[in-house]
Structures are given as C-alpha cells and as structure tokens.
Design a binder for these strands. Structure first.
Length: 292
DNA sequence: CGTTCAACCTGGGCGC
DNA sequence: TGCGCCCAGGTTGAAC
C-alpha cells in the first residue's frame, strides 16, 4: 500500500505527538510474526514504556519515531509495506491491530494496524538506523531527487526504467503506483533500459518524480476504490482522482485519448500509455531488431 | 549483472 | 454456498 506520499501523510499525521510520553505499549498476543517485530514484543513493550516521543521523520517508505527519556538514543522504525497504517483514529477492525501506544498527551493513543501483517516494527540504535535508513540502504528521497543523481545511479543499468524506479537504493519512496504516474508525466516508455535514456530524459524523469510525489503529498496520497489506506485521522487520500494511468487499463489516456495498456514487469503490473510514452522508448525497442 | 520465483500474509472478486 | 484461482500500494533471498 503506502508509498512515499502515503507514508509522508502518516508521518505528518503523527508529528504532533512529539513531546508525549508513552504510558504503555501493547502488542496483542498472536498477531506478531517473529520476523516483523524486532526485538520481540515483550522487549519492545518494555523499551517503549515511559519513553518520550521525539521528532518523527520519514526515510523513503519508512517512518522513524525518535525516542527520548533516559536511555541511549533509540528510534522506533515502522515500515507499513502493503497494508500498514499509523493511526490516531479508531482502526478499521480490532482484528489486525498490531501495536497500541497509550500516550499522556492530548492524543491518547497511537496505533499500528496492518491487515496483511507484512509491515515491520523495529527498535533501532543509531547504528541500526543508519543501516536501515542511511545512504547505503536508500537513495535520495523522491521528493528532492535530481537528474544528476538518477543518471549516476541508473545511467549504466540495463534494467527497464520502471523496474529500476522501484529500487529503493536508486531513489527512495517510489512504488508501483507512482512509478507509473511519474513515467507517464515524463513521457517515457516503462520498458526502456535505463542505459538508453539521455540526459534530457533524466531531466524530465527527475522533474516528474518531484512534481508527482509533491502533488500526491498535497492530496494526502491515493486511496483506490475501497482500499484500506487512510490518513492517521482516518480520511481517504485524494490523489487517486488525478491518476493518469495506474489502474486505468483500457480507459482513454487523458492526454492523447489512446487506450491505457497494462503489462507485467518483474511480476508486477505496469500501466502506461503506448501513445504518449514512446518518445524515448522507440529507440532500441523496434520489434525484431537484433544487434548488428 | 539481471531476471524469475517463492515466501511472507489477508481478503476481495471472479468463474464454476 | 463453497471452492479454487487471481489480484493487490512491498521487500527479501535463493536459484538460474
């Protein structure tokens, strides 16, 4: 579910909790897969109880909640993955509530709810935070990525540009929805190998990434159909209304009127407009063409 | 180096 | 009503 815009919206929705003390941390029994929580829930609850919430930051698709109060520096790092939500409002169901933090501030509790349970909760020290969210793990944030950074990190790659944009080490925060929307705005064929892109393609790509992601943040992310994503105070995002290609296979392109296509790349759906997104793609993608 | 597959999970929608 | 299958916003590791 959440990509950069949704995770940033969650971050903003809980940023005001800074300064609140955690009175108690609860991890409902039986809903904690061993791999998704580190350390184990018991130790997690022990470490969180009594801590004071500090600044809340975002690193790609991860939220880091700084913890103060006595002990050494620590961060609670939450990765929502497909269906995770950080909520101050009531959860959709009690069933998939994974973590409940009771607070002493005006907001009484912070929840992590996750239907599919793929999300992760980790308590990290400074070294762990660097390992999980530092420059070796994550590329530049999608909101501020530059053409130079993209060209440097992807320029030599043979991978299709859509697949490469999902690589968090290249650029952080882009997922399946926004990769499609960004490439449409940049008018680049998702199948083009990165190495075939020229500097003006990288310029359009970086500008499209910044603009699409910033606009999606302004609209509080995308809540598609009856999907689960909500803001921390349980409102739907509004960016889905502005999608140009994602989820629109067979529908007319809002720019050229041609039919939006759906293909599969790296086992995931890619939506694009074959009419608008071929300027760069035409080079080297002629059917039947072999290397000389 | 790059791709493919499976795995981790739940749940909605579809055809039969 | 039920069953089997496919799909879904993500990430990781193994195999080729």
């Amino acid at each position: 579910m959440p990509e950069l815009p949704e995770v940033e919206t969650m971050r903003r929705g809980i940023a005001a909790l800074s300064g609140a003390r955690i009175l108690e941390a609860r991890f409902p029994v039986g809903r904690c897969r061993p791999l998704s929580m580190r350390p184990a829930p018991g130790r997690l609850a022990e470490a969180l109880g009594g801590a004071v919430i500090g600044p809340v930051t975002r690193h790609g698709k991860r939220v880091a909640i700084a913890l103060a109060g006595g002990g050494p520096d620590a961060w609670l790092v939450i990765e929502p993955r497909m269906t995770g939500l950080l909520l101050v409002a009531d959860p959709p169901t009690e069933k998939h509530l994974r973590m409940e933090l009771l607070l002493d501030g005006p907001v009484r509790r912070l929840l992590f709810w996750d239907q599919r349970g793929l999300g992760t909760i980790r308590l990290l020290d400074a070294a762990g935070l660097e390992r999980a969210c530092g420059g070796a793990a994550l590329g530049p944030d999608g909101l501020v990525v530059t053409a130079e950074a993209l060209a440097e990190r992807l320029g030599a790659s043979r991978r299709a540009v859509k697949v490469a944009l999902l690589d968090q080490r290249a650029v952080a925060g882009i997922g399946n929805i926004y990769a499609a929307e960004i490439l449409h705005r940049a008018a680049i064929d998702p199948r083009v190998p990165c190495r075939r892109l020229r500097s003006d393609d990288f310029e359009r790509l970086a500008r499209a990434a910044r603009r699409v992601l910033a606009s999606a943040v302004d609209h509080e992310g995308s809540s598609i159909g009856d999907e689960l994503y909500r803001t921390a105070d349980n409102r739907k995002g509004r960016f889905q209304r502005l999608h140009r290609v994602y989820g629109r296979a067979g529908h007319p392109c809002r720019r050229c009127g041609g039919a939006i296509a759906r293909i599969v790349q790296a086992q995931r759906s890619t939506f694009f407009c074959p009419g608008c997104q071929r300027a760069a793609g035409a080079r080297g993608l002629v059917p039947g063409r072999r290397r000389a």
